[in-house]
Amino acid sequence: MRTRIGLAVVGTAAILLALAGCSGDSSALPGSATAPAPGATSPAPAAAPDTSCNPRASLKPAASLPPPGHMPAGTYMAKIQAQGRLILGTSQDTLLFSSRNPFTGKVEGFDVDMGRQIAQAIFGTPDKLQIKVIGYDKRVSSAMDGSVDIVADTMTANCKRWKDVNFSSIYYEAGQKVLVSSDSKAKSIDDLGGKKVCAASGSTSFDNIGKVKSKPIPVAKAAFGDCLVAFQQNEVDAISTDDTILAGMAAQDPYAKVVGSKFTEEPYGMAMSKSHPEFTAFVNAVLAKNRADGTWTATYKKWLGAFGPAPTPPVAEYK
C-alpha cells in the first residue's frame, strides 16, 4: 500500500517536472472562457480556447530593485512600507502551498514563501507579512478591492482574470488531476462518469470538472480541505484539482491516490490590483532575481523536494 502511494507521488512529481497546470479561481466576474497559452507546449486544456491574451505574459519587470526599506516615494511599495507590513491573501488548508502547521499554528508553504520574499524585498525582513485567509471565490475580488496587497493562492493566471487583475510572471506550473480512493479502478477522470467529484467553489478546477465528457457530478466545497473531509466521510468519490494540491492531500491520507495525467494546465501567478502596475513590475523583478539566484529552487526543495529534484523555474514571459 505504502509503496503504491509512493509510486503515485513519484508519478505526480514526474509529471510536475514535465510542466504543470493549476487551481485557479473562477469568481463569477464577467469575462470570456479560460484560454490555453498560445506558446504552451502541453496538451490543450478542456476549456474553450480563448486566445484573446497570453496569460503567462506579465508586465516588464522594474529595471532595478530599490534597496529594502527605501521604496521610491509615490509608489505602491512605499505605501506598503508605510503601513508596516505586506498583506498576503492566501488559504490555510492547501498543504505544501499555504496551510496551517498544526504544531505551530502558523500558515506556511510555497505560496506563503513567495509572499515572504516580496516582504523581504520591501522591508529587508520576510516577517513583515500579514496573512489574510481568503476564500477561493474571493481571490480576484480581494486583489481588486485592495483588501489584500497581493494574492498568492495556487491561482491560475488566465485571460478571464487578467481582465480584472494583474498577474505576476508565472512562478509555478501545475495541472489538474484527480484523487480517488486507493481501491478505485478509475485510471483518470474520464472513468468517473456519474460519480461525485469535489473541488473548491470558485476554482477553475470546479469549472473544469463540468467540462469533462464522461460527466462526473461536480460538488463544490468552501475549500479543498473540506473536499478531503467529504472524501474521507464518503460523501464524494473523488477530488479533482491541481496535482500539487492533490499530492498534499494524498500525503495526509494513505487510502487515497492520485491517478491519470494532467488534463489542464494551470500556470500560477500572484494577483495584484490593476491600479498600481508599478507593484506588479516590482514583484516581477523580485521573481526574476529569485529565479536567477537560486532562491526559487531552494523554495521548491523546501516544500516540494519530496517529489523529486527541483525543475528549472518557469520561464518568465513579458508583454
Binding site: Q92, D93, L95, S99, R100, N101, P102, F103, A223, G225, D226, L228, V229, Q232, M249, Q252, D253
Partner: peptide, 12 residues
C-alpha cells in the same frame, strides 16, 4: 499526527 486536514474537520 500533524495533518492539516484536522483543521478542516474542526471547521466541519
Amino acid at each position: 499526527q500533524g495533518l492539516p486536514v484536522g483543521s478542516s474537520y474542526l471547521s466541519a
